[in-house]
Simulated scan of single mutants.
Amino acid sequence: MTNTVEERRATITDVAQLAGVHAGTASRALNARTRGMVSAETVDRVVRAAKQLGYVPNVLARGLRTNSSMTVGVVIPDITNPFFPPIVRGIEAHLQPHGYSALIANTDGFEAGGRGALSSLMDRRVDGLIVASGQRDESSIAELYEAGVKVVLLNRDAGPVPYPLVAGNDASGIQAAVESLYELGHRHLLHIAGPMNISTSAARAAAFEAACRSFDGLIGTVVTADALSIEAGVSAMLPVLSDLSHGITGVIACTDLIAVGVLRAMKQMGVDCPRDMSVIGFNDVQFAEDFCPPLSTVRVPTTAMGVRAAQLLLDALSGADQVAETILLPVTLMTRGSTGPAAH
């Protein structure tokens, strides 16, 4: 008795028959490298047929035919940082339907770790890279560019190297946070920045200073934490809390983890949030609204950033020219219990 398509693994021939096209056309439509050879209407019909049949590409066979590993390297600074897993999920969500897999490398935020991760991934013959490394390591990224490796930068840039960058619109997020506190009556704000060798830390600190200058009578002070961590947030905030004569009533942290450190330091010093001092984070990591108090923060579209970076990389792998463009996705200020009227 012959098995039906539903009872066995669907083949490209099955997909082609359901879509009403030749098997070669179906194969090209499902391959990011060759999709441009097929009309958009045909691609849509083939993709819908593949989903209906639960078709899974034979990645090994395709790799042998195209001299491709069908893998993409993803470099991140710290997999334990809750900011990065949604980005990776976004990347995988776009890669998998196209037959690609992601290899994740963690740098632990060190430049040497970043170079080692890039080298390890290239040794595994990945087809391209999505790099969100913690350090602004321009030399290793420049070497990849000179070697013709397809790369998309994510969240953190690499200086003048002309690769595309996908990030959230940090400047608009900082501006919204400053404006929110200003409208609540705060006139002296503190920004706790991350290390300045990280591009997002430098960009958010610069955006904070610019935003403060745009409001009459608003004073802005910047303090630098030595890491993007809760512990670093505590260490940066405790000296501020030891002398409240400066009149700071609102804090905008570079990341939510630093903001948690700020809240922890305030609790340790008996400073109430938001009665005595308001706090705003950045990123809106999972559970931010479950903190005590619920954390006001700038929501960054992490999953969408991962999807967009993967789209750009697969476009490049299919033959499209890489353009040194910066794509900034919109961010949103989420106002919760950690902000309130300024204490006088």
Rank of each mutant, 00 (worst) to 15 (best):
D272Q: 12
I258E: 01
A225V: 05
V240P: 13
A225W: 06
A225P: 00
F291M: 10
N283C: 06
L241W: 11
I219Q: 15
D272A: 09
G270I: 08
P330S: 07
T255K: 00
A316W: 05
R308K: 12
H246L: 08
G319T: 08
T249S: 08
V234G: 12
V331H: 01
A227K: 12
L257G: 03
I280R: 11
V262K: 02
L329V: 07
D226Y: 14
Q286I: 15
D315L: 14
G319L: 09
V300D: 04
Q311V: 13
M269A: 14
I327V: 14
T332H: 03
L312F: 04
T326M: 11
A316F: 04
G247K: 08
L238K: 14
S318Q: 13
S245I: 06
P330D: 03
Q322C: 06
L329W: 04
L317I: 11
T255S: 08
M277V: 15
P330K: 10
V300N: 05
T302K: 15
I280T: 11
V271E: 02
I219P: 05
I248N: 07
L328K: 12
I252F: 07
K267R: 12
R308L: 11
T332P: 00
A310F: 13
V300M: 01
T255A: 03
D243V: 06
S229N: 00
A316P: 00
A225E: 02
I230C: 10
A225H: 07
M305D: 00
A310T: 14
M269E: 14
L312C: 03
A304V: 09
A232D: 08
T249P: 04
I280S: 12
S235A: 15
A236P: 02
P330I: 02
G319E: 07
P274V: 05
D272C: 06
R275Q: 14
D272Y: 00
D290V: 09
M266R: 05
R308P: 10
E289W: 06
G319S: 09
D226S: 14
S278D: 04
L329N: 06
G220V: 12
P239H: 09
L257W: 04
R299Q: 10
N283P: 09
V251C: 03
I219R: 08
P301G: 09
E289V: 11
R299K: 04
H246K: 11
D315S: 15
D321G: 06
E289F: 08
L238D: 11
V307N: 01
D315H: 13
V223H: 13
G247D: 06
G220K: 14
L328W: 05
K267V: 08
